[in-house]
């Protein structure tokens, strides 16, 4: 046996492979889970780079990033968190990009429960309404703005159950434990249609826009895969996927 004979080409192969296919670790807002999985699959096919995805609440990611979490890119659920990270020198200043504008939807797992105008909120014949934590999550804040605008906040607030993020909020509503839930359209939309239950797509004028910004973090500066993914998000293919899940862009 001559181990070096084998080792050299193997090592060369490994090096070549690692140069070609870089990896980027991405923190993704929970509401963008489904579209991002689809985008990451296409991204891997088209560029050979791998995007490792972690899904969760933007507020939690912010705290983790500030405390040294090894994420190289953040797809935030808002535009404030990326701005704050840039200000604090934790993110690359000119990398910020609005990859999606979120759509809020009032949804029920029961077909026919939610009408096309959201009148169900005024009738008040429900026990629980789920929303994302209004202190932390952009979709939760937007839901509170909508209710305040309709003059219903005092009547409805006692019926609030708050999810830790938008995924948990959807879980509360989809298991029927809350009859109603303010969730992201992307969670209930499939192939351009509401997949199940009933929904009122909340007009965007009723709340301030849910601009979702992506940013390359300090740890991802100079990472080829991070830069490629940021560019990929701005391409037609990714934008088409984003739109198909009910986001504006």
């Amino acid at each position: 046996m001559q181990p070096t004979r084998l080792f050299v080409p193997l090592f060369a192969l490994l090096c070549a492979f690692s140069v070609r296919a870089a990896e980027v670790s991405v923190a993704v807002a929970a509401n963008f889970t489904a579209p991002m999985k689809a985008i990451a699959a296409e991204f891997a096919k088209d560029t050979g780079h791998q995007a490792k995805l972690a899904f969760g609440a933007t507020g939690k990611f912010y705290a983790q990033i500030k405390n040294g979490a090894p994420f190289q890119m953040l797809l935030s659920a808002d535009d404030e968190t990326p701005a704050k990270l840039i200000q604090e020198g934790m993110a690359v200043a000119d990398s910020r990009y609005t990859y999606a504008i979120g759509t809020l939807v009032l949804w029920s797992a029961q077909p026919g429960y939610v009408d096309a105008k959201g009148e169900v909120l005024k009738k008040g014949r429900f026990n629980k309404i789920a929303l994302a934590n209004s202190k932390l999550a952009p979709y939760g804040k937007a839901a509170v703005e909508v209710l305040s605008g309709m003059g219903l906040i005092n009547a409805v607030a006692p019926k609030f159950v708050q999810g830790e993020n938008i995924s948990q909020t959807f879980q509360f509503a989809s298991t029927g434990n809350a009859e109603l839930g303010f969730v992201a359209l992307s969670q209930v939309m499939k192939n351009g249609k509401i997949a199940s239950g009933s929904a009122w797509i909340v007009p965007s004028k009723l709340h301030s826009p849910i601009r979702q910004d992506a940013v390359i973090l300090a740890a991802g500066k100079g990472n080829a895969a991070a830069e490629a993914l940021m560019k990929y998000l701005q391409g037609d293919k990714a934008r088409a996927i984003v739109k198909s899940y009910g986001y504006d862009i």
Partner: peptide, 8 residues
């Protein structure tokens, strides 16, 4: 506590 930490 979890909420406080999340809200920094």
């Amino acid at each position: 506590i979890y909420d406080h930490v999340e809200a920094l």
